[in-house]
Design a protein around this nucleic acid. Sequence first.
DNA 1: CAAACGCTTTCCAACGTTGTAATCTTCAGC
DNA 2: GCTGAAGATTACAACGTTGGAAAGCGTTTG
Lengths: 343, 343
Amino acid sequence: MAITMRDVAQAADVSIKTVSNVINDHPNIKAETRERVLLAIEKLGYQPNLSARGLRSGRTDVISLIIPDLKNAYFAELADAVMTAAAKRGKVVIIEQSGGSRARELEILHGPRMRMVDGVLYSVLGLGQEDAGLIDIPTPMVLLGERIFHGPTDHVTMQNIEASQAATEHLLQRGRTRLLAFGAHRNEVIGSAGLRLEGYRRALQKAGLDYRDELAIDVQSWHRSDGAQAMRQVLESGLDFDGVVAFNDSIALGAMRVMQDAGLKIPEDVAIIGFDDIDETRYSLPTLSTIDPGRREIAETAVAMLLERIDGAPEATPAREFEAGFKVISRESTAIRPAEDSA
Amino acid sequence: MAITMRDVAQAADVSIKTVSNVINDHPNIKAETRERVLLAIEKLGYQPNLSARGLRSGRTDVISLIIPDLKNAYFAELADAVMTAAAKRGKVVIIEQSGGSRARELEILHGPRMRMVDGVLYSVLGLGQEDAGLIDIPTPMVLLGERIFHGPTDHVTMQNIEASQAATEHLLQRGRTRLLAFGAHRNEVIGSAGLRLEGYRRALQKAGLDYRDELAIDVQSWHRSDGAQAMRQVLESGLDFDGVVAFNDSIALGAMRVMQDAGLKIPEDVAIIGFDDIDETRYSLPTLSTIDPGRREIAETAVAMLLERIDGAPEATPAREFEAGFKVISRESTAIRPAEDSA
DNA sequence: CAAACGCTTTCCAACGTTGTAATCTTCAGC
DNA sequence: GCTGAAGATTACAACGTTGGAAAGCGTTTG
C-alpha cells in the first residue's frame, strides 16, 4: 500500500509523532532531526493521508461552492475567481450544481457532503427571502447573491441598485430616454431582478422621467435564448424604444442578436448595456457595454470571510454583510455622443 | 459535537456495527431492525462522517478533474458534463485548474490531493507525448484530450483528424477552395492543432487540391483575443482566402469579429467553421457552424471508465482508448449554396 | 436429543493521523 | 556535581467508521 508516517518514522529513526510535528511545523524540533525527517519524506515520496488527517483534526481544507450552473458564463467566471482565491490560501473547492432549483439547493445544503467540507459558499437562485430560516446549518457558510438578505449567515453581494442606476444613467446621459428594463421579474422585490429594476426606476426618477410599466420586459430565466425570445416579442409588439438596460449580459447578447437580425443598428438605433462583464462582452459585435460587478473582490472577500468563520470562534461575531464595488464599462454598444439631442 | 453512529446505535438499541450494516445495505438484516435504525437516523439527523469512512474504507467517492481553465468555455462545458455524469453515479468532483502549464499540471498530479480522491480525470495542455512516462501514478486515472496518445492509462478523446477533415470538406462542398487552416501549431504533430491540421490536409488532398503552407495560420493560444489578433495580421498581409477552418470556436469568433470590422461579409465573402460547439456559437452573428465533438459522450465514457478502474482489478486490463463520435453542425456562417461555382 | 446449519447481531481491531501529557535530554546556574 | 527549567521527543489514546470473525439464536436434520 501507500507510504505512511510509520514508514517515514522508521526510515528517519524517530517516532511517528515527530514526523507529524515536523510536517505541521511544531516548535521545538532540532534542526538536525527536521533534516532527517524531511529527507526520509523526500526519499520515500510520502504524502499525508487527508482522510485520516480530516478525521483526527476535523479539518479537510476543502470548501464547497454551490452554484446553479457552470455552463452559465457568470457562474463559470465566479467559480474561477473563487477557486483562485481558495488556492491562494491552500484550500481546494468542490463545486456542486443545483440547477437553480429550490429543492435541489436545500437538498445539497443538508446532504452528507456538507460534513466533508470545512465550509460552504452558497450561491442560490431558487431560494428566496422566506427561506432565510432554512439555511442555518452547523457548517460555516457565506451566502452569495441577492436572493436572501439579512439572513443568519455572512453575506457577500454586489451593489445592485446603485449599479443598475449607473447603467441606466449611462444611457440617459447619451440622450436615450425610452429605455427597456430588460429582464425584470415583476413580482420580485429583492433578487437581482427586483433590485436592478429598482435602480432603473431611481435613475429615471432622478432624471425627471416617468416610469412606464410597459417598458419593463419580463425575462424569466436569464439565458441567452430567453433574451432572444423576449426581444422577438418586443419587436413584434411594435413597442418604441431607443435603449436597453439588460439585467445580465447573456440576455443582452441574445437580444442584440435579434435586434440586428431585424435590421436595427447598435448603437445608432438602439443602445444597450448589460450586466456582469462576462468575457464574451469584449468580443461580441458590437462589443457590449456592461457593469463589472467586482467579481474578484466578491470571491476574495467571500473566501476570506469563510476562512475567518472556520478558524474563528463559532458564533462570536454576528453575521456580516459586504457589498463589492462596481464599475460601468463603456464599449461600442453605447458608443454614441453623450446627450446628442441637447447639442 | 455532531451525531455519530454511536448515538444512532444507542437510540435504536443495537450495536454500532449494525447501524453500519444498515447504512451500507449489507445482507441479512431483519426488516424490523432496519426500520428501527432508519428511524433513529431520521430522528437524530445522523450524517456519516466521510473522512472516517474514507480512512477506513479507502474510498472517498470524490474524483478530481484537472483542467487548464474554467473561464474557457470548452472546459466549462466539459466540467459541467463530467460533474453531471459523476453525480449520476454518486460521485462528487473536485476541479483543479492548471492554467495549461506543464509544470503546474505535473505538480497537481503529484500533489497530496491525489491521495484524497478515488481517481483523476486529467485534461492537459502543457504536457506532451514525451511526458507519457511521467503520468503513471498509483491513483486510477483517465486521460482526456489529444496531447498524449498510447500512454500508460485509459484515454478518451475525439476523432480529431476525421472531424477536421469533415469540417474542411463542409467548406469545400460549398465551393470554397482557398481555405485557411486557422489555429495551426506548425511544430506539432499530435495535439489538437497537429491532428486537425492533418485532417485539413487530407480533405484537400482528397479533393485534389494542393496544400499551401501560407494558408496555415499559427495561433499559439486558442483564446478569442489570439484569434482576433491573428486574423488582423492575415488581413494586413493581403492574403487571399474565401474560407476558414478554425481549430476551435473561440478563435473562430475572434476572427469573425475582425473580418466583419474589416467589412467582409460572412458567409458571402468568407465562410467559416469552428470546432467544439460551445453554447455561444448558437448566438453569435452570424451563428457559427462548428463541430460537435461529442462532449457528453466523452464525459460519460471517461467517468464510466474511471469508475471501472476504481472498482476493478488494479492492473488487470490494459490501457483502453476511446474516441467519441462527432457531428458537423451547419449554421449561418457556412450557409451558402453548395458548390455554387459549379452551377 | 444432540449436532449442524443459516440467519442475525455483536465484538474487536484497524485505517493514519494528531492532541495531551508524560518522559527523556540538555544545559545554565550555583 | 546537583537542581531546575527549558527544549526535544515519545507513548498513548482517540477521531468515526468498516472488515472479519465470532457469537447468539432459532430451526432443521440425522
